[in-house]
Design a protein around this nucleic acid. Structure first.
Length: 198
DNA sequence: CTCGTGATTCACT
DNA sequence: GTGAATCACGAGG
C-alpha cells in the first residue's frame, strides 16, 4: 500500500459508518479478508459498548480518531477486532464479525485447522484467528500497519440487511448489526446470554 | 448443552 | 496493593 489511506468517510455517526465497512478488505500477516458482517458499538448511550463506563485505559482507543484497530480478548480465548469510527471523541467502533478469505487461503486454513472455507472467518474470534490478530495489534493505525484496511466502493444498500446484535447481555435489542444479504460467511445468530438456570 | 480461558475493571484494603 | 466478577466466543459432546 503506497499512499495514506483515506478514512474520512468513517468520521461520521457509527450507524452510517458501519455499513461502509461491508466489502472492505482487511489485511494482516499474509491473509486478506473481505468483510461481510459487522456490528456497531456507540458511546455512553450504548449499554453494550466497552466505552459505556467512560474512558478507561482499554476503551481509550475508541475515543480516538477513526481508522484505528481496537482488539480485545473475550472469554479468555478469543480475540475480537473492531474498527474505530466517528470523529475524535465519539467513542464508537465497529466489530468485525464475519468475512471471506480472498487471499492467503492456505495460511488461513493452516491457522484455523479446518479446510471448510466458510468456517474460517465465521465469527469474530475465528476471523481474528485466521488473520493472526492478537492483543499486540491493538491500536494499530489501519493506514500504516501492521494491519491494513482498504475501503472499496460502498455496497449497494439493497444488498445489506440489519438486525439485532449478537451475544450481548445489554442492549442486544438494538438493530445495530449489518451484513451482506445471503452471504454464507455470516455468523449464526446467537441469542443474548446463555440463560443460566438457578 | 458445558466448559475453558485471561484481560480488564471495580470494590476493598 | 489484592481478589472476585464479568465478558461483544469457540470447541466439543
Amino acid at each position: 500500500m503506497t499512499g495514506s489511506a483515506d478514512f474520512s468517510s468513517l468520521e461520521r455517526p457509527v450507524l452510517e459508518a458501519a455499513p461502509l465497512l461491508l466489502g472492505a478488505l482487511l489485511r494482516h500477516d499474509g491473509v486478506t479478508v473481505r468483510i461481510t458482517e459487522v456490528e456497531a458499538y456507540g458511546g455512553a448511550d450504548d449499554p453494550g459498548s466497552h466505552a459505556a463506563g467512560g474512558l478507561t485505559p482499554r476503551s481509550r482507543v475508541m475515543f480516538g480518531p477513526a481508522g484505528r484497530l481496537y482488539v480485545f480478548l473475550s472469554y479468555g480465548t478469543n480475540f475480537c477486532a473492531n474498527v474505530v469510527t466517528g470523529p475524535e471523541g465519539s467513542a464508537s467502533a465497529v466489530l468485525l464479525r464475519g468475512g471471506e478469505v480472498v487471499d492467503g487461503l492456505d495460511v488461513a486454513k493452516r491457522r484455523r485447522g479446518t479446510k471448510v472455507e466458510k468456517e474460517l472467518t465465521r465469527g469474530p474470534g475465528k476471523l481474528c484467528s485466521a488473520l493472526n490478530i492478537r492483543l499486540k495489534e491493538n491500536r494499530a493505525d489501519l493506514s500504516a500497519g501492521p494491519v491494513f484496511l482498504e475501503l472499496g466502493e460502498p455496497i449497494d444498500p439493497e444488498l445489506v440487511s440489519s438486525g439485532p446484535r449478537v451475544g450481548l447481555t445489554n442492549g442486544a435489542d438494538l438493530p445495530w448489526r449489518f451484513w451482506i444479504t445471503g452471504d454464507p460467511t455470516v455468523s449464526a445468530y446467537r441469542p443474548a446470554k446463555t440463560a443460566r438456570r438457578s
